[in-house]
Amino acid sequence: MKALIEIDKLNLFYGTFQALKNVSVEIPQRAITAFIGPSGCGKSTLLRTLNRMNDMIPGTRIEGRIAVGGTDIYSGEVHVETLRKKVGMVFQQPNPFPKSIYDNVAYGPRLHGVRSKKQLDEIVESSLKAAALWGEVKDHLKRSALSISGGQQQRLCIARALAVEPDILLMDEATSALDPISTLKIEELAQELKDKYTIVMVTHNMHQAARVSHQTVFFLNGEVVEYSETEKLFSDPSDQRTEDYISGRFG
């Protein structure tokens, strides 16, 4: 599998605090990569550098290189909004807008210039189908997105992210606020989506990483301890700290 995202010797500072230390990771295309590690280890921070959501936190400073498809996304030539269109994101808390289900999904396409009603209808339908939500909501697309259940809201957020046709989907502990059944649905969905999208997920749940991902990256205190194929990492970790973590000795 060819690497779509290359992170090379990345250092990230919040003011004087160094949140990421010399991180180098390659993320393969059309596969699921999981970031695991105890809280505060920098896994979410790294995820948020991939679509430059960290830009909005004042005092953030970055050294090193992150390339998506060969382009350094922190170089002056990259247009942040277009980057974020290509690198979608799903957040920890389901965060649909206080608008209708339809308007939520159509938000991104409208933003990027789709005006025709017919085209929007098609995008909404295909995105909701891709997020396995179409069957549940197709009869009340005009209802407020806040009226559906948390699990449905999260799948709506996935549909909303898919509607702008990203290549990469970032999931920031996307199941941690959900019940087990909804979690399972999202995991199944991720499995289906990986054939078309490159998925990077942060999870606090090792078993989830083991269940769904192809590659796992283990973080500790802002450093990448090791990363490899998920099976290998969980069955035969090369670092003692990884073994301690996955066997539940800390974290």
């Binding site: 959501m53 965060n95 938000y107 933003l111």
Partner: peptide, 22 residues
């Protein structure tokens, strides 16, 4: 809530669009 802004920026909106649409 900040989460609405996050969602909007993550979909590739700029500030003008985020303010007026969300």
């Amino acid at each position: 809530p900040k989460k609405y802004r996050d969602a909007s920026y993550a979909l590739g909106s700029n500030r003008f669009q985020t303010i007026f649409r969300v």
